[in-house]
Computed example of a mutant assay.
Amino acid sequence: MKMAKARQQDIDAAIAVLGILDAIDGGYYPTDPDAPEAEVPTFFDPDDKAQLRHLYDLLTRQIKRSPGGMLRVVMGFATIMSNNIVDPALDHLELHPRLAHGLVAAEENRRLRMTLERIERWDDEFPETNRKHPDGSPMSYSSIYGIGGERDYMRKLARQALNPSEFAANPIGEQR
């Protein structure tokens, strides 16, 4: 299901309406944050026509502040719930486990893709050995570790890509 996204103006108006309703639910007279400070009753009297008119004016002003905003806020949340964006089993908002697992899988896919792309364009990118031949020229990785060393280095890259903690400590893109 799709629904128009609530704008900040919609959310602000919904919060203001919530504040008004919360005040009368608690038995208090709802104040108008846009009106100059005046002497107002502390408690709300549902039998007082002037107070009912004040309540009506407050609510309609907030609703008119963002036409359609209440619909976008309330139905937007209903859409989020019906589309399983948040975990319906919890009493607080948290990503649905399906989405949380998807984010983990996407990160794993990124790690693996970076490694495979590096291997695909491989051009003797073994790390520096910091060792020198007797003539002072640098010793290559292959000359020190041989073909088995090269194989082991490629396996190390694969292990790092497959293990999130090893990859985080030494990302593939930063190895040279």
Rank of each mutant, 00 (worst) to 15 (best):
D32P: 01
K2H: 11
V17K: 00
R159E: 15
P88R: 01
K132C: 05
N84D: 15
R72V: 02
D124P: 06
E117Q: 14
A16I: 06
R98C: 05
L157H: 04
K64T: 11
A169F: 04
Q9D: 14
E174I: 07
N170P: 15
S165R: 07
A169M: 05
S142D: 15
E125G: 15
D152S: 13
K156Y: 13
K49Q: 07
M154I: 14
L95P: 09
V40W: 06
I144A: 02
P46K: 01
D12Y: 02
R151A: 09
R151P: 05
N170M: 14
A89N: 12
A35K: 06
N83I: 08
D91P: 11
P36S: 06
E120I: 09
N84V: 11
P134Y: 11
A169T: 14
G146S: 03
T60E: 09
E37M: 03
Y28L: 03
P41Q: 06
G136N: 10
T31V: 07
D91A: 07
P41W: 01
F126R: 04
A89C: 03
A4Q: 12
Y29W: 08
D57T: 08
I147R: 03
H92G: 12
A169S: 14
R118W: 10
R151M: 04
G149S: 06
G69T: 08
P127Q: 04
G149F: 00
L55F: 00
N163H: 05
A158P: 10
L162F: 05
R176P: 14
E150R: 09
R176F: 05
G27V: 06
A23M: 05
G136E: 11
R7N: 13
R72H: 08
H133T: 14
K132Y: 12
R61H: 09
R159S: 10
